[in-house]
Amino acid sequence: MTYRSAIARQPDQFRHALEVVRPQLRKLDLSQFKNGTLVVTGIGASYEAAAVVTGELQRRGRRANTWRAVDLVEPGDPGDSIIVLSVGGRSVEPIAALNVHSQLPSLAITNEGNDPLSRAASTAIRYESGLDSLPSSIGFTGSLLAGGLLVDALGGGESFNWNDIPHIASEVLKTSAKKMARAGEIFRDQRAIDCVGAISAFGTAGEACLLIREAVRVPAGASDTLHYLHGPMESMDQATGILIFGDGREVRLAQELAEIGCAVLLVTASELPHDHKTLTVVKVPPLQNRVARAIVDILPAQLLAAELSDAAGLTDVPFRYSQTDTKVAMDETETQI
């Protein structure tokens, strides 16, 4: 599965995931997850997806915190129940976290469901995203979609018409694609790229950072918007770039950095900013549901990563650093992802 083909396949995959996840949620007893403090966890891109889901839970009035899975591998009292995201369901740290906190109700969200993490959890749902690319595209957005549907199930009703997400995503991909030649030229040869957003968009920024590191092999870092103003932006200059997600202080930040010559891609629902100098603006719908917004926000970042990867001659190149101790071994009954 090539990276660009996986990106393009996401709207169709969302339709399939809706058909797969909804019946599962209707059958599950979620009563143990409807009270107390929710711990939402994952590692790598799944941690960033967890941060997005936590933001929507908090918007809906739930006590919820995002924990890195590595911080849950020792005994403690993190909360009352655990939601864990992992595309393949074989990452060592989330499995260890559930084993250490086996006294807590836990729910795993994975791609296929027939995996060690799903078996370690009290209950599980799958979203069937199918084969993914390197770096991940469908796996990340599939996790988000399943997480968004779960939040609605826990909250007792939908705050967003999820049937609209395939069409919305398709339109955002088309809009974004028209901006990529400009953005790709502006971002080409930047020595480092920051990614910035607030609340759930901080998770989106974290995923964008991973895409840049994995697909383009350029150093990248993620920061919360207001935290970024307190020092981290001091290193920015004409040799650096930034991806910004948001509609508030993010707009002014994008304009300020473009004025000093930074390469800037702003993903926003604000009507105010327009392409200017080194600023490229991608407009997205003003979705209140933070998970739905994260799904559409990450699409321009995926396309930019593909554009820069092509320019660097790294299109669909395998990762250089293969790890041997981050996944548990598969048995013969499992499906390879």
Rank of each mutant, 00 (worst) to 15 (best):
P285C: 05
M180P: 05
L265Q: 06
L144I: 12
S106D: 09
L299N: 01
L299Y: 00
G148H: 04
P300S: 04
L272E: 15
N99M: 13
E74C: 01
A205R: 03
L57F: 11
L117Q: 06
G44D: 10
K178G: 01
I337M: 14
D237E: 09
A96D: 10
K327I: 05
A192G: 07
M236A: 11
L304R: 00
K174N: 07
I244G: 01
R320G: 11
F14V: 03
W67S: 07
L154I: 03
I109P: 08
E74Q: 12
A181G: 04
F319E: 15
A305E: 08
R68D: 13
A312G: 12
P116E: 02
S136C: 09
A222Y: 08
G55A: 10
P285Y: 07
L145N: 06
T54S: 05
D29N: 14
T204W: 08
T141Q: 10
L154S: 04
G261I: 08
P78K: 10
R60C: 06
T110Y: 08
L253K: 00
V21F: 07
S159A: 08
L304T: 02
L25G: 04
A311P: 03
A254L: 04
E334F: 13
V70I: 14
A269N: 09
F160K: 01
M330C: 11
E112F: 12
A108D: 05
I83P: 07
V282G: 02
R182W: 02
S5C: 02
R68E: 13
D164Q: 10
L57W: 08
V87E: 14
K327T: 12
C195Q: 08
I165P: 01
A254C: 07
V92D: 11
E332V: 13
Q302R: 02
D164M: 03
Q58V: 15
M1S: 14
R213W: 00
S31D: 13
A294G: 14
K178V: 04
K327H: 15
M236Q: 15
T326K: 14
V317H: 09
V216Q: 07
I212E: 04
D310Y: 02
S136I: 09
G36D: 12
G61T: 00
L314S: 07
E259H: 11
C262N: 11
L104S: 04
R63M: 09
I82F: 05
